[in-house]
């Protein structure tokens, strides 16, 4: 069957008529905006591990802006491996019973900027690493989400030799370390700007989607 001519409007597309097929370029980020509250949170999002499980820990904190005020409209995600350091491959991350573990959690902050997860304390994914959770922060006024890591303050030996943590300016290193504040509870505040500003991470190799620039690719 002959191909039908496409009727797709091209008004938005750059003129590509004389160019080879373009390589896929990164889609830009935009802010999550203020109105995600009825869309992104889901039942069980903050409970990566049911609180009644004996290995459950609490990871909680407050998201602050550059004036030191709590941000009431941020949403935080965590992602981490299991206690043995293995990323979960169990299908069903959103709808799950209380016995499994998916490693992914999502919590909108409350009016006072606070978030709280229950999860399990992760293991290190390889020899020589300290255990940590990957933390992602979205908010109105944050045009592109921010990544950071939550290490644990009761892992001092492993933290001391972790290939990332040990290279961070010692004056700022504590911003990446969740502080034990009770039985099986850790506090991890996130400061977007200013005094005590959290160390945010850039994993980018291609993240900036440089037009036409393909070196630096991993594969």
């Amino acid at each position: 069957m002959p191909d039908q001519p496409s009727l797709r409007a091209r008004a938005n597309a750059p003129d590509e008529s004389n160019l080879p097929a373009p390589e896929p370029l990164q889609t830009p980020a935009q802010t999550v905006g203020p109105f995600f509250g009825y869309a992104l949170p889901y039942a069980g999002g903050p409970a990566v591990r049911a609180a009644w499980q004996p290995d459950a820990i609490r990871l909680h904190g407050t998201v602050f802006d550059g004036a030191g005020d709590p941000i009431p409209d941020a949403i935080v995600e965590i992602w981490g491996p299991d206690a043995a350091g293995r990323p979960s491959t169990e299908r069903g991350v959103l709808e799950r019973d209380q016995h499994g573990f998916s490693g992914f959690g999502r919590a909108a902050v409350d009016r006072d900027g606070r978030f709280a997860f229950t999860t399990i304390k992760p293991g290190a994914t390889r020899e020589g690493l300290a255990p940590y959770l990957l933390v992602t922060v979205f908010a109105r006024g944050v045009l592109h989400h921010l990544f950071t890591r939550a290490y644990f303050d009761d892992e001092a030996a492993a933290n001391g030799t972790d290939p990332l943590l040990s290279t961070i300016d010692p004056a700022r290193r504590h911003t990446l370390v969740a502080e034990s504040d009770g039985p099986a509870s850790y506090r991890f505040d996130i400061r977007l700007q200013g005094e005590g500003e959290t160390v945010f991470l850039d994993f980018a190799v291609l993240d900036h989607g440089d037009e036409g620039r393909r070196e630096g690719m991993q594969r």
Partner: peptide, 17 residues
Amino acid sequence: QLRHPTRELVRADPEEI
């Protein structure tokens, strides 16, 4: 204005997770 980091992001090698 009050919600962007003022420090440069730290380049990190992604780990398995």
